[in-house]
Amino acid sequence: MAQQVVSKKDYIEIRKRPWYVYVIGLLWIGLIGFLAQNAAASAQELEPRAAMVFWVSAAVVLLAGVVIAFLRSRK
């Protein structure tokens, strides 16, 4: 009796990210850098409320980017 060999193949799909993902990533980094600069500089300017608003904004943008990137990678 011929033994049937069952071959199991695994496929790994490598998908190249479109160019705009990199652009968005750079914009995201730039925005966080801009907000962080303003936050730190506002503290130097002795403007505590402005510093707080900028730090919170930077944290929100950072977190939003991380969450979006994570969710996209789960697809």
């Binding site: 966080i32 850098g33 907000l35 962080a36 600069q37 936050a39 730190a40 500089a41 950072l62």
Partner: peptide, 12 residues
Amino acid sequence: GAGALAIGGSAK
């Protein structure tokens, strides 16, 4: 993200 913060910090 940490790199971005570092850029921000160094910019400051």
